[in-house]
Design a binder for these strands. Sequence first.
DNA 1: TTCCTGGTTT
DNA 2: AAACCAGGAA
Length: 313
Amino acid sequence: MRAKASKPRARSKPDLAKVHDRVLAWFEEHGRSFPWREHRDPYQTLVAEMMLQQTQTGRVAPAYGTFLAKFPDVRTLAHAPAMEVIQAWRGLGYNRRAVDLQRSAQAIEHEYGGVVPSDLKALRALPGVGDYSASAVACFAYDRQVPVVDVNVRRVLSRAARASDELSLDETRRVAAEWLAPGEAYRWNQALMDVGAMICRIDKPLCAQCPLKATCEYRARGLNKGPRPERRPKQSPFEGSSRQKRGGIIDHLRDTAGEGVSLSVLAKVIHPNGHKDLTWLVELLEGLEREGLVEMTPGARRGSARGIVRLPG
DNA sequence: TTCCTGGTTT
DNA sequence: AAACCAGGAA
């Protein structure tokens, strides 16, 4: 690590006790309610956080209840056919997370006696569990006093503590730990996420309603009035992409779960206009197979039109 | 840091 | 068509 040219200047520290009071009071009145906020069951928390990783709350809410009804505990999920888990994931996207979640359940079953670990390192080692999900489970299920940082929280802290530019990951971790409300991590973390989602939005933040407005650098400098600052480089089109085709393949296999589908049928489904070369399809399928989302007969792997593809049993 | 992922929004 | 969201992984 090297010294940055634009080191953040020294500034008077905000009165964190006041900030905590205001934010927690705001949360009491305006915080969102979700099914996964009505319990602290570690397994259910893990399921919720895996679903919430890249999927918005509105899409997660209905799937969440259905999923838990079918797989009520670690043991059930760990022993279920992968196919059923993938099917229960319908509508959530990022199908790989379904496989990751089940593999996590299997690891929990076999390595931790069926008890979701509360330790950050142990959680972090589960497949598909990164910093965010690990800290979310540790805090929300076990009341561990650790920061939970998603992009919303990062943005809130970046604006409140620095104003311009986003805090680096290391800086975010440091600030998040420093600002954590003592003994109130559970409510504090959820409050910051809600502030980020409801008030401190990327575009046109509602600063007038913000519980952090008194100490916010971003607002103090009037940057909230300016144009949208952040900008993301490139992004290939979704239409016709491998991402889209992967999703289409899994969607189709879900509907024909038991028997599986031949390569030629799959090719037509994914590319209705006809496509002689099956190589592109086999490459996609090999990727899906590596991720545990499909099974292929040897014929399919060779590119034979009659080769069969199915969801894993 | 950069890439990947699956959709939705603009 | 392009931008965007939001994590995990390499």
